[in-house]
């Protein structure tokens, strides 16, 4: 693709300081996100999956600078978001919006739906009061609610309806990119597909670009064009949705996919069960962070950090099974005599 992507993320890092002792001295760091890079093309949906604590939500929040990145750059339409002043950043947020995980917590309980939806327009000084009210009603209809819902309070809605309000709020300023952080994980399964379909309809209608963060592989598959898999603050595999589900390369992705339940009682699957727990991000393992749980571990995995490399066209993977180092190492195992000093 030759055109400039809508969003380009380069080597994004977030280290949270660990404080302790009487004076609150820094005694360590939690490496929540450790060098994540990816691009998002206009109009596509990028899914980011990973188990809890892998840094996917932190990544999403850093894109909007709701959490300040420790290192790395985020380019939105060619402009570096990490360099923007506070004022410019606020203006930029008109084009990048966020849908939150918990529809019960992300709406101010003291404001009516109308006030909640109107707020983004007020903040950015868009439209007259009458125009704003009109747009609130319009958007309520678009997300499948009714305009008479505007006078109500969030607690009077169900979870699915609240998430629709959250989506409507994100759409108010006609943004180009929407980051959805676990948009359906707090909802009942029966409501999940409704909300996901709504998101897809809106994407077609308004030409939106999505980054969908989720831990549910089914949700991500349903909605994403491309999927990135994260493990312990790093992107380990990134490819198109079909290819990831048909032919996962990274052992972690393979294990994740084999854990997806299949609705067929006669199907006998041999799922890969990972041993041990996810290591602590304050003290990540050396080399490949997955080596402590990987069924295909080699010696090189403990020493060298695998880079995210293009294995096939558009299919990136960070694993020594496919890297030059790894292949050299596996040959060395066969012929250890040939190693010279």
């Amino acid at each position: 693709m030759t055109t400039e992507p809508l969003l380009r993320v380069e080597n994004l890092k977030k280290h949270f300081p660990l404080r302790g002792g009487v004076l609150g001295k820094e005694i360590g760091q939690v490496k929540a996100v450790e060098g994540v890079s990816f691009t998002v093309q206009k109009g596509e949906t990028l899914g980011i999956v990973g188990e809890s604590g892998c840094g996917k939500s932190t990544t999403g929040r850093m894109l909007l600078r709701l959490i300040e990145p420790t290192e790395g750059d985020v380019y939105f339409e060619g402009k570096n978001v990490t360099d923007l002043s506070k004022t410019d950043l606020r203006k930029m947020r008109r084009d990048m919006q966020m849908v939150f995980q918990d529809p019960f917590a992300s709406l101010n309980p003291r404001h009516t739906v109308e006030k909640i939806l109107e707020e983004p327009l007020k903040v950015h000084g868009i439209g007259s009061p009458a125009e704003r009210k009109k747009r609130v009603r319009e958007l309520l209809e678009i997300v499948g609610l009714s305009s008479y819902h505007a006078k109500r309070y969030p607690h009077q809605f169900s979870g699915g309806q609240r998430q629709r309000i959250g989506i409507a709020r994100a759409l108010m300023t006609r943004p180009k990119l929407i980051i959805a952080d676990e948009p359906v994980s707090a909802l009942d399964v029966s409501i999940q597909s409704q909300v996901l379909n709504l998101m897809q309809d809106l994407q077609n209608e308004f030409g939106l670009t999505y980054i969908v963060i989720a831990h549910d592989l089914g949700v991500v598959r349903h909605i994403s064009d491309r999927v990135g898999v994260m493990y312990l603050g790093k992107m380990v595999e990134l490819t198109t949705s079909e290819r990831l589900y048909d032919m996962p390369l990274h052992p972690y992705t393979q294990a994740l996919l084999s854990a997806v339940p299949i609705p067929d009682p006669t199907f006998e699957k041999d799922s890969i069960v990972l041993q041990g727990d996810i290591p602590s991000p304050s003290n990540p393992p050396s080399g490949c962070t997955f080596h402590t749980r990987c069924p295909f571990k080699m010696d090189v995995c403990e020493q060298k950090v695998p880079l995210l490399q293009e294995q096939e066209e558009g299919h990136y993977v960070a694993c020594h099974l496919y890297s030059k180092d790894g292949q050299a190492a596996s040959q060395n195992i066969d012929k250890p005599e040939e190693v010279k000093i």
Binding site: R90, Q97, F100, D102, A105, N108, V123
Partner: peptide, 17 residues
């Protein structure tokens, strides 16, 4: 720490507001 505060920041509200 409530999510609606984060949401308010996400829509571009200033700290004061």
């Amino acid at each position: 720490e409530e999510e609606y505060i984060m949401a308010a920041r996400a829509i571009g509200m200033s700290d004061f507001r």
